[in-house]
Structures are given as structure tokens and as C-alpha cells.
């Protein structure tokens, strides 16, 4: 048992520092995908709520595709497909040029596409939860469409959307583990390297699982506080 714990020590004999670096990379991936994913989700939600048929259809198609595909497949399509597409584009400018897509960027793009598809549904529901009368009143006060969204709808979205978005964040956090397949040195990848050297798969994968559990535990604490803050103007069911 003590031998196993020694494997987790920091420094040249232990894998503690490597695994910690991987855990940080996991957090970076998730935090980098979050704003991009929410931005995509908001744009797609607005498209699905728009009066124009083509925009609505495009929004629905985006959601169907990226919610229906396995995350692993999305990742491969973005990584290999992006590489080939960019190389072809570069070929037009400079003969025979090749472009390497950075794995981190490919991972973030794939994760934010998936997060965008899922959060667009949450945000659409939140947009529709704002009573129509408020928009009509704002319009009667002479606010432009953009200002109605910016000052009336948008600030109220978060209260309704936060529980759904917190679910999406938890899913995102776990999906980051998939990027280890395209050789990003995240928590999963570093663990696999440690396993390859020490031949202790059960112990190290268990440690990795526990680290993911800590992350989701911490996230739920943060989201509980955010939700309390977002709904501070409202009485809750069963509250007082």
C-alpha cells in the first residue's frame, strides 16, 4: 500500500507532478471550451427562435448532428478533417504546403461544438421562459430588437438556464477525457503513461477517477452558489 502511495509522490520517482499537470490540462480544456460552447449555443438558440425558416432549419440541423454523433467521432472529424481542409486551402496559396492542426485547438473546437449543441436547447427553453409581455412592453417603450435582447431577455436567461448549463458542464468535464485519444496530455493520457511504466493500471485509473470526482464535486458547489445568486430576486418553492 505504501509502495503504491509512493508512486504518487512528486519528483523524479513519483507520478504526482505528471498527473497534476494532466489534471490542470483537463481543467484548461474544459474552461477554454466553456465560453466558446455557450456562445455557439446562444447563437444557435437565437437561430432556432428566429422568424426566418432557413435560420431555424440550420439551427435544428446543427443540433441534430452534434447531439446525435458520438463525441469521439466529432473529435476525429474535427481533427483529421480540419487538418485535410486547411492543408488543401494552404495548397492554393503555397504549392505543397501542409498545415498541422494543434491538438489542443482541435479538442477545444470539437468540445465546444458538442457543448454548443446541447446548451442551445437549454438556452432556447430559457429564452422562451421570459414572458412575452416583457418583450412587448420593451417594444412599446421604443427599444430596438437588439436592445430588447440585451437589456430584457439576456439578463433573465441565466436564472432559468443555469441548472441545465450546469448539467452540460458536468458532461463537458467528463468528455474532455476523450481528447487523450488524439494525444493531448490531459489527466487521462498522463495516467495511461504512468500505467505503461509502472504496470499498476487499477491503482492509477482509480486515482484518475477520484480526481474527476473531486472536479465534479467542486463544480457542483460553484453552481449551487451561482444558482443562488442568479435567483436571489425570486422566492423558491418550499423556501420562505
Amino acid at each position: 500500500m505504501l509502495d503504491l502511495l509512493r508512486l504518487l509522490s512528486f519528483g523524479p520517482d513519483g507520478w504526482g507532478d505528471e498527473i497534476l499537470a494532466g489534471a490542470l490540462m483537463t481543467i484548461e480544456l474544459a474552461l477554454a471550451s466553456l465560453p466558446a460552447g455557450i456562445a455557439i449555443g446562444l447563437a444557435v438558440a437565437l437561430a432556432k427562435d428566429s422568424p426566418f425558416f432557413l435560420l431555424r432549419a440550420a439551427g435544428n440541423l446543427f443540433t441534430t448532428v452534434f447531439r446525435g454523433l458520438p463525441e469521439l467521432l466529432t473529435l476525429f472529424i474535427v481533427y483529421y478533417g480540419g487538418q485535410m481542409l486547411l492543408t488543401r486551402l494552404a495548397g492554393y496559396v503555397v504549392e505543397g504546403a501542409t498545415i498541422e492542426v494543434n491538438q489542443f485547438v482541435a479538442g477545444v473546437v470539437a468540445l465546444s461544438l458538442v457543448l454548443g449543441a446541447f446548451s442551445s436547447e437549454v438556452l432556447l427553453a430559457a429564452i422562451r421562459a421570459v414572458p412575452r409581455g416583457q418583450k412587448e412592453a420593451a417594444s412599446a417603450l421604443g427599444l430596438s430588437k437588439f436592445r430588447i435582447f440585451r437589456f430584457v431577455t439576456f439578463p433573465q436567461l441565466w436564472r432559468v438556464a443555469l441548472p441545465g448549463l450546469s448539467n452540460n458542464w458536468m458532461v463537458l468535464l467528463k468528455d474532455t477525457s476523450l481528447v487523450s485519444v488524439i494525444a493531448i496530455t490531459d489527466l487521462m493520457r498522463q495516467t495511461a503513461i504512468a500505467v505503461g511504466v509502472t504496470k499498476q493500471p487499477f491503482f492509477f485509473y482509480l486515482v484518475a477517477c477520484l480526481i474527476y470526482l473531486v472536479f465534479s464535486g467542486l463544480s457542483s458547489v460553484v453552481f449551487t452558489r451561482l444558482e443562488a445568486r442568479a435567483s436571489r430576486g425570486f422566492k423558491r418553492m418550499g423556501g420562505h
Partner: peptide, 15 residues
């Protein structure tokens, strides 16, 4: 529910 399926799969298969 709190850990990635990939990690669980590795835990069982390699473990």
C-alpha cells in the same frame, strides 16, 4: 455518474 466512461472502461479492462 461522476467519472468519465473512458476512465471506467480502462479501469475494468486494464485493471
Amino acid at each position: 455518474r461522476g467519472t468519465p466512461l473512458l476512465a471506467q472502461t480502462f479501469l475494468i479492462y486494464y485493471g
